[in-house]
Design a protein around this nucleic acid. Structure first.
Lengths: 341, 341
DNA sequence: CCACGTCGCTAAACTGATTTAGCAGAGCAT
DNA sequence: ATGCTCTGCTAAATCAGTTTAGCGACGTGG
């Protein structure tokens, strides 16, 4: 900082004009009748003084802060969703906005606190994000302003941004069909809670729908469906082991996420089976680990960055008020092949 | 929001006092001679109206915003360091502050932009964070205010918060010694660039120092040291394979981070060797993957959350102006055992 | 010659807080 | 009665912008 910042009054003085004139010129107001020369002088003065408007003063009058609140349950903290923030950050910067980040940690007190903090600061809008794609209740206090849900829906008719899990399910199933897998496709990661309670997950049900409908259209049914209490590596490991104990071994396994797939890899490794030679594996999320596995895991990527970006766009540029589905691109690696005859 | 927010003037009116009185009471000013009854009335009025001060108005006058800028090269986005943000978020909330997050992505234009955005908003302080522990140059524009470096140092004498990598190195080495490993301890992840250029990494050199000095004190030298161009799984995999090709197989391997260790696990799995039966593995970072590996990987954890927290504490509560080292706790899992006779 | 409109610009109000300077009244000593 | 201090409180300035209302000069048509 060093010396004081120049104020609008300084600019006006140096340009030999009034604050009013300077303000209007710098804000590019239409319909003002200031001369071209006045414009020149103001711009020159602002440039010479390195003038930057004081945001506090401006927002006191205008009630605009060029600031967006990013409220999440636990997103900021999670390895999965840094991408949401990065995308939002990028899009915000492009629109000359800045992000105020808050976490509720699913705690009502923290949430109240976060809401108050952002209302006090008069943010221009709120992005309300969830770590796991799910339905949630938006605190009524922020419903007065503009809100976009990110990776979530709510009972209120708010614009929201979601990954296209159903499309991803379809794509995953198609990929296996295209490779010639038919009646020996297994699935790991069924979970009633996740599938039935939208407040826990929307992804489980959507992915499953996409998979089922695509396979059904090809006249194929899933060979077996392994239930898992959580979508963690240990459960994928256990599920894969029980799968291998069955009389008919599948030619391909769809895992509901990459961590399950990681567990499945571990079980296959121990069993001395090779991927994709003995068995193909495909999955969802594109967790960083998917690229590190040997062979690399083919998986439908959660487009976190795109989603964060879209949320800001919808908030600032206005959306159609409905749900915005962001496609999940398939990352093709080496874990899927044509089944051995 | 709904209806308008109450202003200080509203509170004063309802309390039958002046704005001055209301302001003083609510700010708990000492030395004012306002009566106990006046205090009561102001508090009651504020409570009844749900009064919350307008931050913009306040900071226009006081130049304080109760906002901290969290500027990072790429931290917000990275799975490694969500913890930094969470810790900072928690500590900030405890002190009634809020975090403004910005990313420079290592790009000079973005950095300039970020700096302007935070100066415009008159943040109370800046946390300047790096993804990889390293030395960096702080933009002079923010040196006027208070700055704390997080996971970084700089040529300027600024307070900084760093993980205690050297201590972690020592602890890792001690752990192996305590289990009875002596002359057949290998290391994976040597890297001249990282070790020599503090602008790339401070961790590599510090970890190595800790390991070396501890082993030396016990009269032990490293068996072999595998160089790696990067600290990624594939390099750990390659390094472990060459290690296994040697005539003497190590009893233990220290990996410079968990991703290298993951690669090492993969190579060991393929070679049919078991951990820790045939070989112990120990590492640094406590990446989530460390807990997912089979067996779980013992590793010195980067205390991201503590570090983020500490940075806010130093910034707001004042530090001693020097470097603040946060210990890296060892997560003991099952990858280390006594070597087979 | 005067009323009127347009042009180019400015004074002052306003946003909602904090802070400085100071006022009225009571009590007390001289 | 006068001057002084202390108590309890307030008017007004201030922060740095935006916005409203309007002023003086000039050109023009009647």
């Amino acid at each position: 900082m060093g010396r004081e910042r120049a104020t609008l009054a300084d600019v006006a003085r140096r340009a030999g004009l009034s604050k009013t004139a300077a303000s209007m010129v710098l804000n590019g107001r239409e319909g003002t009748r200031l001369s071209a020369e006045a414009h020149q002088r103001v711009f020159a003065a602002a440039e010479e003084l390195g003038y930057r408007p004081n945001v506090a003063a401006r927002s006191l009058r205008t009630r605009k802060t060029a600031t967006i609140a990013f409220v999440s349950d636990i997103v900021a903290t999670t390895r999965f969703a840094g991408g949401l923030i990065r995308g939002a950050l990028d899009a915000a910067r492009e629109r000359d906005h800045v992000l105020l980040i808050t976490e509720t940690q699913g705690d009502a007190t923290f949430e109240r606190y976060a809401i108050e903090a952002i209302l006090d600061r008069q943010v221009d809008g709120v992005i309300y994000a969830a770590m796991a794609t799910r339905r949630l209740a938006v605190p009524p206090a922020i419903l007065g302003g503009s809100v976009v849900l990110l990776n979530a829906t709510s009972p209120e008719p708010l614009p929201c941004v979601l990954p296209d899990d159903e499309g991803a399910g379809a794509m995953v199933a198609e990929t296996l069909l295209a490779q010639g897998h038919r009646d020996r496709i297994a699935l790991i990661g069924r979970n009633r809670q996740k599938e039935l309670d939208p407040e826990i997950s929307l992804a489980a049900d959507a992915r499953l729908r996409g998979i089922r409908s695509t396979l059904a259209a090809a006249g194929v049914a899933l060979l077996t469906e392994g239930f898992c209490p959580e979508w963690l590596p240990e459960h994928g490991y256990a599920a894969m082991r029980t799968l291998l104990d069955r009389p008919t071994r599948p030619t391909a396994v769809i895992c509901m996420n990459d961590r399950l797939a990681f567990g499945a890899y571990q079980a296959l490794g121990e069993a001395g089976l090779s991927i994709p030679g003995d068995l193909s594996v495909i999955s969802f999320d594109d967790d960083p680990i998917a690229a590190w596995l040997r062979p690399g895991l083919s998986t439908a990527a959660l487009p976190h960055e795109q989603m964060g970006r879209r949320a800001v766009e919808v908030l600032l540029d206005g959306g159609d008020g409905g749900a915005s589905f962001v496609p999940m691109p398939l990352r093709r690696r080496r874990s899927v092949a044509t089944p051995a005859a």
